[in-house]
Design a binder for these strands. Structure first.
Lengths: 194, 194
DNA sequence: TCCATTTATCAACAACTGTTGACTTTCTAA
DNA sequence: TTAGAAAGTCAACAGTTGTTGATAAATGGA
């Protein structure tokens, strides 16, 4: 009953979008605690009260801002030898591509001190990463393999985008693909030895 | 002039230690923003004013609490084929052993939203991880190799100890050593192919 | 014992936080 | 044009934060 709105380019929707955009930017840059409602309002050139009026609370605003869709490709159909390369290429698109927003940065940056963000990030793992990895190899192993894959990818994201560790920032895309790719390949396929 | 105090088991030193212990525990569990001075004082069964009296400010308290000494072994002397295993074993000691405190947890948890903690963590990388990796392989490569090693280790720490991703928490020490070890070996030695 | 230094407590400050209600402006439809 | 809803502004609330100064209790050597 609240879902069908075929035509509505209304004025308010634009400011609502402005607020959400400012919130995503600031949450992604400074985390949940570091970005106040007043900061968001200032970035959206609007009164702080409007932020609450459009989104009921800061928690709800964060919940709307912390939406992530990794759009991982189905690994079943591609070459089994290119699993690692496929994953790391998609990773770079998610974090550096123009299409994907700062969703992952929002979650990762806030997850260390905000339990809701941590739970959301665990859900991304369970609903988006795990199934993709489970599609290859034996399903009983899926959690372990997906966990290993995530440990490498989240670590790379931490070092390169949040912590900004100079040597990791300096890595070229090719460097990353050639070094991290084989690791992901081994983790995702579940092989122990070299 | 302020360094030589041969005998001083004074009463105040004990409460100072209590405060620091409480601070390390709470900073490691909730991060810089999530742990207030009043929380620290309550955990140390003392008045909040005492926390400021002993350490001049919250920032200084955090600086005292966020001290990390990884005590990594010199990789030059050990078997070059066991570099990865040596690193991951030391990692497990640092994070789960009884001797090492929550130092790394403090830094990692706060680094996402507290610039000082991020800088401290980068210093740990530059002063403790990088030199150890530089001791093997050619030095020109050291930053890149140490960066790759750190990306895997920090990612594992994130998933297992901060985010507490269930499949990563469930990994046994042997599982971790057998899977992460070879990755670190490859990163640290600077080999591309399998 | 007594006095001086250390150790600890208390109340309060200013700044910031999320959130709210009353009010004013702007837009839209009859 | 005008009534009414929508959109936005303002000031203030209650709570928490780091920090400080005055004051009380405890300690320890003479």
């Amino acid at each position: 009953m609240t879902e069908n709105q075929p035509k509505k380019p209304s004025k308010s929707d634009r400011t609502r979008a402005h607020i959400l955009e400012a919130a995503r930017h600031l949450f992604g840059e400074h985390g949940y605690d570091g970005a106040s409602i007043r900061d968001v309002a200032a970035h959206a050139s609007i009164d702080p009260a409007m932020v609450i009026r459009y989104f009921r609370s800061k928690d709800e605003l964060f919940a709307r801002a912390a939406v992530v869709d990794l759009q991982l490709p189905a690994l079943r159909v591609i070459d089994r030898n290119a699993v690692g390369e496929t994953l790391i290429r998609r990773f770079l698109e998610v974090w550096e591509g123009p299409a994907s927003g700062p969703g992952m940065a929002i979650l990762l940056r806030s997850s260390t001190s905000h339990e809701f963000a941590a739970e959301k990030l665990r859900e991304v793992f369970a609903n988006q990463v795990r199934p993709v990895v489970a599609a290859i190899g034996n399903p009983a192993d899926a959690g372990r393999r997906a966990g290993l894959v995530s440990s490498q990818l989240l670590g790379l994201a931490m070092c390169r985008y949040l912590l900004r560790l100079p040597p990791v920032v300096a890595l070229s895309h090719d460097d990353i693909i050639q070094n991290i790719g084989p690791t992901l390949q081994r983790y995702a396929m579940g092989k122990d030895g070299p």
